[in-house]
Amino acid sequence: MKFESELLKGVAPVVVLEILSQGRMYGYELSDAIEKRSGNVLSLGRGTLYPLLYNLEAKGLISAAWESNESGRQRRYYSITGIGKDELARQKQQWLDLQRGVATVFGFAVPQPA
């Protein structure tokens, strides 16, 4: 199942931060992880991934560093920063609130008292 791009655009930064919060990754590994961990529901276009990573880097939410693996190949690894973790927590809470609100409107669940 593929989501419309506008819907995906809003969730993509949180998804990237969430995956990186579990460990550092390089670009291809990250795009692969997004697909796998979302059960192929979320598929971030590769063309969108790198500009997104650079924007998150510019905001100081993630950091990047070139490193070599055992075979000597250079890859650029991305890690979540302290600011990124705080932002992730805040975004996740927003998503939960949104999810709850949307579910209530759609009648999927009974709203819980605040």
Partner: peptide, 12 residues
């Protein structure tokens, strides 16, 4: 893609 990457890099 080139435009988006350039914009991202400028922000960095």
């Amino acid at each position: 893609l080139a435009k988006l990457i350039r914009r991202g890099k400028i922000r960095c």
